[in-house]
Design a protein around this nucleic acid. Structure first.
Ligand SMILES: [Mn+2]
Ligand SMILES: [Mn+2]
Length: 555
DNA sequence: CCGCGGTGGG
DNA sequence: TTCACACAGTCCT
DNA sequence: GACTGTGTGTCTCCCACCGCGGGA
């Protein structure tokens, strides 16, 4: 399997960013060429045939925030004057010179004093105060004259030109096809080249790619725009009518369901409960099932809610969701006068403790200080220690070149890390790592990887929390059998079981024992996933308990 | 005048 | 800028 | 007791710079 990881451009090259952009574009053309239209391929060819300096300026704009720029802020030491380059780009249709601007767009381009000049031109006799806030100037202009005009119209003597980028959709599509997401961007190249981010090298063959059908890319992009429109507060019914149909792969369909769920919640907040219910009803996503039951509980007869909750319990395996549905079932049964078997709820071992709580110090720190007086070493680690140890032990499985899991050089984990098939796709590797907990090899493995893999990005590792001291302490005082039980439980559902681990891990070096403590201050209570972990610990004989802290009565 | 949040850049 | 956690306010029994 | 919404840190690099807005 040829390793075709592209080298980031040499940063001594003044056009290093253009070189990186070409790497990305060519990568997508080679692997995803069949997912691009003839028009898109033609535009990329046009880009190639532009003079190098014009290409570079375009990439500078693509990498910057927004789609509107002023020519005086496009001056780069490594490039010639922007205007002639911009004209080349405009001739090729990549940018638009002097575009029509809304008032908001105008304001994003101008600084406050320039914006005041615009006001002054509109009404020289009664301009607003120069002390007005920028946003007030915007509203002032809107009230006086709202209409999109070009910068030439708004402020002819501005002293610079406005330019808009006309290739964002294509560039966003390329970015998505390369990274498989839209939160990583071009800066990944330079940040990696600088050594600020490290990534595990995973062999990629030329068939590795994030998408396999153009319609999948389209769906991802459509969902993303709808998501943004939802966040911006657009009318919910507009978004509802544009919801795309079912996705072709489970992970895309899951993204669609998450958006449907978010839209349903927005309807709920807006008081449009029937719209919300319709959305939830079509949505098999766990969260949606629960919200639907909650709405039924509020709106329907308790008998109906009881039946629906009972049916959901048959279908849903995820323990946290089951816990919430179970409570709904119990409540509606009581309301409907249905008698059901009382739930078995294990009692969680709880200790009450009075401590002097300082205002500027967390309650967890107070407990750590208290334990220190008893010669016990405690760390506030929450999820970060066990998930980190898990990742160190199972590293070869996590970063195994499973087909489809890795498709670009900047991944902090496989694409399917939180998907149900993760375990099955790597079973042999996982078993080999687990076996080390039985043969005893795990200690050396984990310590070696802690050193070897230091600072390599991994979704399950928070490096600052994973100090050698803590790892050593864990490997010394936590029995292998306990680690195994914890890891097997995490493996069942990495997405949900990486949350809810107790606040503190405590090491008693005299007694050579350890324990886990979930700290609860006054007015804080166990969350469902925290309770589930504590139940798991108790069932496995792992020492874990809740410390309920009260303010110490002074005198 | 200065703190800040946002942005650009390697 | 998401995500996990804590915390505060509300309703209900 | 349970549900809900909100606040907080944040550890997706890290430094320099700029404009805004407010109060030293
Ligand atoms: Mn905590
Ligand atoms: Mn806690």
């Amino acid at each position: 399997m040829p390793n075709v990881i592209p080298a980031g451009a040499d940063l001594n090259d003044p056009l290093y960013y253009l070189s990186n952009a070409r790497t990305l574009i060519n990568w997508v053309r080679e692997r995803h060429g069949d997912l691009l239209t003839q028009t898109e391929l033609y535009r990329l060819d046009c880009f190639d045939s532009l003079p190098e300096q014009a290409q570079a300026l375009l990439i500078r704009m693509v990498m910057r925030r927004g789609e509107l720029f002023r020519s005086d802020q496009l001056q780069y030491a490594e490039l010639s004057a922007p205007l002639p380059l911009l004209r080349l780009l405009a001739d090729a249709g990549f940018v638009l010179l002097d575009p029509a601007l809304t008032v908001e767009e105008l304001a994003s381009l101008l600084c406050k004093s320039e914006l005041w000049q615009v006001c002054h031109r509109l009404n020289p006799d009664a301009p607003p105060s120069k002390q007005s806030r920028k946003h007030d100037l915007v509203t002032w202009i809107t009230q006086t004259d709202h209409g999109a005009r070009t910068l030439e119209d708004w402020l002819p003597d501005a002293g610079f030109d406005a330019v808009s980028l006309e290739v964002s959709p294509l560039m966003q599509r390329l970015q998505l096809m390369f990274f498989g997401n839209l939160h990583q961007d071009w800066s990944a190249f330079v940040v990696t080249e600088l050594g600020h981010q490290l990534y595990e090298p995973v062999p990629l063959d030329s068939a590795s790619r994030a998408f396999h059908q153009r319609s999948d890319v389209d769906l991802y992009l459509a969902l993303h725009t709808l998501q943004q429109r939802l966040e911006q507060g657009e009318p919910l019914n507009d978004i509802l009518t544009e919801l795309p149909a079912c996705g072709s792969t489970p992970w895309l369909e899951n993204r669609r369901r998450k958006l449907m769920f978010a839209l349903g919640q927005a309807f709920e907040r807006a008081g449009q409960l029937s719209q919300a219910r319709t959305l939830y009803a079509q949505n098999p996503h766990r969260e949606a099932r629960i919200r639907q039951l909650r709405l039924m509980e509020r709106m329907d007869l308790p008998e109906a809610t009881f039946e629906a909750a009972s049916a959901s319990l048959e279908a849903i395996q995820q323990p946290e969701a089951r816990l919430r549905i179970h409570r709904i079932r119990v409540r509606s049964a009581r309301k409907a006068g249905i008698s059901i078997e009382p739930p078995r709820q294990p009692v969680i071992s709880t200790h009450r403790l009075s401590l002097p709580l300082e205002a500027n110090e967390s309650v967890e720190q107070a407990v750590i200080a208290h334990l220190a007086t008893q010669g016990i070493q405690a760390f506030h680690v929450e999820n970060r220690l066990f998930t980190g140890l898990f990742a160190l032990l199972y590293w070869p499985a996590i970063f195994a070149p499973v087909p489809g899991a890795f498709f670009h050089p900047f991944q902090a984990g496989p694409a399917d890390l939180y998907r149900p098939e993760f375990q099955a796709s790597r079973q042999a590797l996982i078993d080999a790592c687990t076996a080390q907990l039985e043969t005893g090899g795990y200690r050396a493995t984990i310590l070696a990887r802690l050193a070897q893999k230091q600072n390599i990005r991994c979704h399950l590792i928070h490096w600052p929390s994973l100090t050698e001291e803590r790892v050593n302490a864990c490997l010394t005082l936590v029995p292998a059998e306990h680690l195994k039980q914890v890891f097997l439980h995490m493996m069942k559902d990495l997405r949900y079981h990486r949350r809810g681990l107790p606040d503190l891990i405590c090491f008693d070096w005299q007694a050579r024992r350890y324990q886990l403590i979930e700290v609860k201050g006054p007015g804080d209570r166990l969350q469902d996933h925290q309770r589930l972990w504590l139940e798991c610990f108790q069932a496995q004989g792992i020492p874990a308990s809740v410390y309920q802290i009260q303010h110490e009565q002074t005198e």
